[in-house]
């Protein structure tokens, strides 16, 4: 793997440095470390435009981008934008902030446990869509907020219903995921191989 240190450089220098490294011997794997999130995003875009599958990582206070050549590569490609789901794309549609009806305290605990355990689905977990009371899981104070952030960082897209956020007047308190609309949700359902509704 080719290592590139782009720390201390202002945009567009990290992209140019990466470009130079690719021209020099066309490596199948590169790892670029930069010191700010904008440079990380720019290197991500550059590598994807050059046909690499890309994952992002945090390296202490710095930001890493790992690129692997897609086709013909011996390495299993992984991408942040579209995780390679070997056993289908699973969409989890969460309409509630608690699991089941009966005892609310128990329901909340079950949700924490569910979100924690969901990672066992591995790369197949493709989208988590939050609607109605489910959107309350994305705000400060939610017990699963950190868990959701981890899924997002790992490449699972989190879609949060904008109408619902507005209804509860918590649009500005959302801390994870992309605000979305019903058209997005319906398209996501159509593209998913499996939809699990809570």
């Amino acid at each position: 793997m080719k290592e590139i240190d782009g720390r201390g450089l202002a945009c567009p220098a990290p992209v140019l440095q990466t470009r130079e490294a690719l021209q020099d011997g066309s490596p199948n794997e590169v790892r670029v470390v930069v010191d700010n999130p904008s440079a990380q995003q720019n290197v991500l875009r550059f590598l994807e435009s050059q046909g690499f599958q890309v994952v992002l990582e945090r390296v202490g206070n710095d930001y890493g981008v790992i690129g692997r050549r897609g086709a013909g590569s011996s390495v299993t490609p992984v991408s942040v934008a579209e995780p390679l789901a070997t056993d289908g794309k699973i969409m989890v549609m969460c309409t509630t902030d608690r699991i089941g009806s009966g005892d609310d305290v128990l329901g909340s605990k079950l949700m924490v446990s569910f979100m924690h355990t969901l990672k066992e689905m591995g790369a197949a977990l493709w989208r988590i869509v939050l609607v109605n009371n489910g959107v309350k899981l994305t705000v400060d104070g939610s017990e699963v907020l950190e868990e959701l952030k981890r899924y997002e960082a790992a490449g699972c897209k989190i879609l949060v219903c904008g109408t619902c956020l507005n209804h509860f007047d918590i649009l500005d308190q959302k801390r994870v995921g992309e605000t979305t609309n019903m058209l997005d949700i319906v398209c996501t359902m159509q593209l998913a191989d499996k939809v699990i509704t809570l």
Binding site: C11, P12, V15, S38, Q41, N42, R45, F46, S49
Partner: peptide
Amino acid sequence: AAMGLIPAGAYN
């Protein structure tokens, strides 16, 4: 833009 030649201000 597709090549990542985007000023940091855009992300901000």
